[in-house]
Write a protein that binds this DNA or RNA. Structure first.
Lengths: 239, 239
DNA sequence: CGCGATTCTTGACGAGTGTCAAGATTTCTC
DNA sequence: GAGAAATCTTGACACTCGTCAAGAATCGCG
């Protein structure tokens, strides 16, 4: 019997957390989820091509050419192009949504967190610019193509949560509370990040330094002003 | 002689300010710039289709179908599709870059300006959502297609200037100075605006009210605290 | 090994694309 | 109104796209 392509891929895919699920009696390879491995491999190839060409210009043939497979195999693992795209986006989200967890975990003071956060933002622009422009491309496409909206909304939400964790930790380190809601903080950072990415792709010198400085200037604004007079140095009181 | 299609359209088009230039000796119609009228008419049709379908899916045939012309006429007025797109984007920019000039001119107090600004932002989402999503689409495409970058950068700059005028006026009404530079302010507002647009297109209730409230909460943060020593000043000119 | 199920390749089809050229139509000028 | 210049229509071209089906290759298990 020919397996129906991607019987469960359209909605509610839950990627196992990087390590494959250990089936009780088959310690080596589960026979049926080699399918999923291939899907992931295909998704990674596709993401490379998508990041290079964008959503509209990345054809299935080009995606397959940049992979180890031929162009027909896509329809063996995915029903159509859109399902592949959505799968890719969800797969990508999984890998990037915890990018700042280290920053949150390791920061020792508010200023330290700000610096680490800024560095990480700059680093991800340098190292993953194609992925980021793909994300902005897809989010824009979702404004036209309704079938993309659900996935995009979910990812946007988890990015907002990601930013919220950073801001909350920042406020905790400063012994105060965030002054603005998570959606606003996310919108703000997303906006300046997008500008920095545009500047970086345009080859504008200083785009990355500007981003770093902007984060330094912006973060303190997100905190509720302490009613105390001590506004200058509230750093270095937590271990 | 057949006129070469759009001999001067690639760069540096300067749209006459809505009213056609009155040639000294020919008070009625200049014979040669009927060409430009047609180009504008075509651009308006194209913008309608582009706002509906987006950059990638709007074909020249579809653009022509939604206009009074046939599909071949495009290459009579434009060299290729990209030139049409760039022309459209520049044309659109001209009409939207002064959207908040009235807000700047009529505001009587800082709070009044904030309210007017927020209302105007909401209004333009409701009335021109297709144009805005097209702009975000094109800006994302410019991250992949280098031939779009120059036009996009120019438009982004004039949007930044537009925001700078609002913020500067706001600060002046509050008898203080902006606390953040123009690129940051633009990035911030662009980010929250984009989120609001996404929410609006997704049919999320409250997306527009949220935007209004976010503006009210955000604007005061852009001002230097009165007691502070003036530290930074924004680039950008007051009207 | 051998056979059946799975996986992959190849080639084709129809639809849609940007582009262009040749001719029809309109507009303008004398 | 005739002729020339301009504008516009039509139809075709070469190409790419997503999709799919038929068969080849591979794998797994007896």
């Amino acid at each position: 019997m020919v397996r129906m392509a991607s019987n469960d891929a359209r909605e509610g895919v839950s990627f196992p957390p990087m390590t494959q699920v250990a089936a009780p009696k088959s310690p080596r390879r589960t026979p049926a989820d080699k399918h999923d491995e291939r899907r992931k491999a295909l998704a990674e190839s596709a993401l490379r091509t998508l990041g290079e060409l964008g959503y509209a210009r990345a054809s299935l043939r080009e995606i397959a050419n940049n992979s180890e497979f031929s162009h027909g195999v896509v329809h063996y693992y995915f029903n159509d192009k859109l399902e592949l795209i959505v799968y890719c986006v969800r797969y990508y989200k999984q890998t990037c949504v915890h990018r700042y967890d280290g920053v949150v975990a390791e920061a020792t003071s508010p200023d330290d967190l700000v610096l680490r956060f800024g560095d990480k933002l700059v680093e991800t622009i340098v190292e993953e610019a194609p992925m980021h422009r793909l994300w902005y491309d897809l989010r824009s496409q979702s404004m036209f193509e309704e079938s993309l909206r659900e996935a995009v909304t979910q990812i946007d939400q988890s990015l907002e949560d990601m930013i919220a964790r950073v801001v909350n930790r920042y406020a905790a380190l400063a012994s105060t509370e965030p002054a603005i809601a998570a959606p606003v903080a996310y919108g703000m950072f997303d906006g300046v990040f997008q500008q920095a990415l545009l500047g970086y792709l345009n080859g504008r010198d200083g785009a990355l330094d500007d981003l770093r400085n902007q984060v330094v200037g912006l973060m303190p604004m997100l905190l509720a002003q302490r009613s105390d007079i001590t506004t200058s140095h509230m750093a270095g009181e937590l271990p």
